[in-house]
């Protein structure tokens, strides 16, 4: 066990897997000499050389698309898209080509590829860097979507992602890179997909979150506690596959639920969560399901981003409203 920030946990997973499996290569913009703009790949080039830690030109589509070709020759690419906001330049390759390769070849040409990308707000980035686009990717089947919220999960889920035979979009909460830390087990371990994590036990209202919204939900739970409300907080960990049974069980603990995410509300993944719960747990509901999300506006310049990214105060308000309903 060692205390690590999330970025350190990610780096340790990359290094461990590259040592364990010589087929693994890391590629992306600025990942080699610089070690990544957030230093996720810092030091890897010294260990593994420039042919396994590859600086690419600034071209997201061919970074993602060439990864499929590399995989067909037996390599295991881990690509970094510098910010998720740039991933739409590779949207077709990731969502249609990588995600569909197994299906369209009837299993002959699967795409064992991990696409890492940081996302999320409140870190004063320039435009087009911070958007939460997970639901856009979740609409494309064949792609697994992994969104860790803790340091030990970041390591264990990343190791699972690289070993997973399907393409994985591994989304890293930007503001959690150094803010989120925790005890990370030494050595090799994986965290399975499709098994949510209970962050905190509670009995009055269930808060559902993932990635950078988990600390927001946890903070809201503290504030609710001070008001005598016991919140049950779960971290989905993976959106695809989704732990449907775990979600229903978490809702049944309290009969009330607030889903929290950073993406704008309309067609955000929160809509999927509440639809699922009303389909599968309707008779356990004590109140209407609620979503706390960003407004249907554009990710702003930093001056108003704290008003865009949902904070704990909004979560508390929504939770109290469900208790009054």
């Amino acid at each position: 066990m060692a205390e690590m920030t999330m970025i350190e946990a990610i780096r340790s997973a990359l290094r461990l897997e590259m040592e364990r499996d010589e087929r693994v290569i890391v590629m992306g913009e600025d990942v080699g000499q610089l070690g990544g703009v957030f230093r996720a790949t810092d030091g890897l080039r010294q260990f593994f050389g420039p042919s396994r830690v590859v600086d690419t030109p600034l071209a997201e589509s061919v970074i993602a698309g060439s990864a499929l070709g590399l995989a067909l020759t037996g390599l295991v690419p881990v690509i970094e898209i510098q910010f998720l906001g740039f991933a739409q330049n590779a949207y077709h390759q990731i969502c249609q080509q990588l995600a569909r390769s197994r299906y369209r070849t009837r299993g002959a040409q699967p795409a064992q590829i991990t696409v890492r990308a940081p996302f999320g707000g409140n870190v004063r980035t320039p435009e087009f860097h911070s958007d939460s686009m997970e639901s856009q990717f979740a609409q494309n089947t064949g792609l697994k979507i992994v969104m860790p919220a803790s340091a030990p999960d970041a390591k264990g889920l990343l190791l699972q992602s690289i070993r997973d035979p399907d393409p994985v979009l591994f989304l890293e909460p930007l503001r959690g890179y150094r803010m989120i830390s925790g005890e990370v087990p030494d050595g090799d371990y994986t965290v399975p997909f499709g098994a949510l994590r209970t962050v905190r036990e509670g009995s009055d209202v269930t808060l559902v979150a993932w990635s950078g919204s988990v600390p927001v939900a946890a903070e809201a739970a503290e504030l609710l506690d001070a008001k005598g409300v016991s919140a049950h907080v779960v971290d989905l960990r993976t959106l695809v596959p989704l732990d449907e049974a775990g979600l229903v069980a978490a809702l049944e603990r309290t009969g009330r639920c607030v889903v929290v995410h950073e993406a704008p509300a309309t067609a955000g993944f929160g809509a999927e969560v509440v639809a699922l719960l009303q389909e599968q747990a309707f008779y356990s509901l004590e109140a209407p399901l609620r979503r706390v999300a960003a407004p249907d506006s554009h990710y702003p310049l930093p001056g108003v981003e704290r008003d865009f990214v949902p904070g704990a105060g909004l979560v508390v308000r929504a939770a109290l409203e469900t208790l009054e309903a």
């Binding site: 061919v62 698309g65 499929l68 070709g69 067909l72 020759t73 080509q97």
Partner: peptide
Amino acid sequence: PHAVGIGW
């Protein structure tokens, strides 16, 4: 892009 990856 796939072909470039294969050759590479």
